[in-house]
């Protein structure tokens, strides 16, 4: 079929393959329950990685994601404990704050023509530092609404669970696919990732698009922070360290080219699921150190980057 979907086929087949290997080796692995748990455990990562996908598609990078997750968790927990806010306005507050934070980074990147790497690295330190300033200690969340949301969900056959986190992640996925492939904004993001100069000459509003992309990524990071707080029931300034790198890995394993312009949001979902299934495999095995997850992810990254290089070479030759 279509050559441009090839990385997507590779990623999705790899996921299926890994899942099958686990199912053959372990009893109870190949169940809907384990499959759904992949979503539950990684919902926050799926959301953050989807935001990252847009950034990478546009040829940028966002290192502030993990810190933003921690910051939004800390702010929510402090607003709830010390200021007696209801969670809903607290959520709205961190989502707006996150969006503005991302928009500011995007604006700095665009108007000062700075490397996204440096700007978002600064953003990462800033958000991490700010969360420690707000509260150095882990702040527990105790609110009825939280219990209700965290418990909300649907029972599926075989004891599987479709929880609120998963539902949010799937809604985000649908929204992201719509944005990326069925709106003018999506075309602009791909266009800027392909060749920013040409895109500008074709009438693409570079400033608006760049700012939107980083705003979107930070919005999703803040949302990811909310979802993250659903299972930790706390806000902690040192939470989610390195999640930005997991997100980048998921995007790349999902078949998106790190230089921008090529890739699909769905691929990122599979990227996260592959990482999740490796982790599940290792916990089923029981004898392996959980650090093996990192080693396998590292190897997969190499393989995927090599594959992309090969496809790009072949693509330009044809």
């Amino acid at each position: 079929m279509n050559k441009k979907f090839l990385p997507l086929y590779v990623t999705s087949s790899l996921f299926v393959l890994l899942f099958l290997v686990g199912s053959v080796q372990f009893e109870n692995f190949g169940t809907l329950r384990v499959f759904m748990n992949l979503f539950t455990d990684n919902a926050f990562l799926i959301i953050a990685a989807i935001g990252m996908t847009f950034v990478i598609l546009s040829g940028g990078i966002d290192l502030s994601v993990g810190s933003t997750i921690a910051l939004s968790g800390v702010i929510i927990s402090v607003l709830l404990r010390d200021y007696g806010w209801h969670p809903i306005p607290a959520f709205a507050f961190v989502l707006v704050l996150g969006t503005l934070f991302g928009a500011a980074m995007g604006a700095i990147i665009h108007f000062y023509q700075l490397q996204p790497f440096i700007v978002t690295l600064a953003g990462m330190f800033f958000a991490r530092g700010l969360s420690s300033v707000v509260s150095e200690e882990s702040v527990p969340i105790t609110h009825m609404f939280y219990d209700n949301v965290a418990m909300f969900g649907f029972e599926l056959p075989g004891g599987a669970w479709l929880g609120s986190s998963t539902i949010i992640a799937l809604v985000v996925l649908g929204l992201a696919i719509w944005l990326a492939n069925f709106t003018r904004f999506g075309g602009r993001v791909y266009g800027i990732g392909g060749d920013a100069q040409s895109a500008a000459l074709m009438g693409v509003p570079i400033a608006r698009t760049t700012i939107s992309v980083y705003a979107l990524s930070s919005f999703f990071a803040a949302l990811s922070g909310i979802v993250f707080s659903f299972y930790t029931f706390s806000g902690y300034s040192l939470a989610a360290v390195g999640v930005e790198l997991d997100a980048i890995a998921a995007v790349v394993i999902g078949g998106t080219l790190l230089t921008g312009g090529y890739g699909y949001v769905v691929g990122t979902l599979f990227g996260v699921l592959i990482m999740g299934v490796v982790q599940t495999y290792i916990s089923f095995d029981g004898t392996l150190s959980s650090w093996w997850t990192k080693i396998v992810i590292g190897l997969l990254l190499f393989v995927f980057i090599a594959l992309q290089r090969y496809l790009v070479r072949r693509g330009t030759k044809a």
């Binding site: 069925f182 075309g187 060749d195 100069q197 074709m202 090529y262």
Partner: peptide, 27 residues
């Protein structure tokens, strides 16, 4: 050539004036 190598030919022709239907791009 100041077009976008990664987009499809049709996208290049219609970038910034894509035909839409119900708010989504009518591919």
């Amino acid at each position: 050539v100041n077009l976008l190598p990664n987009l499809t030919v049709a996208q290049n022709v219609f970038l910034e004036r894509e035909p839409k239907r119900f708010g989504i791009i009518d591919w």
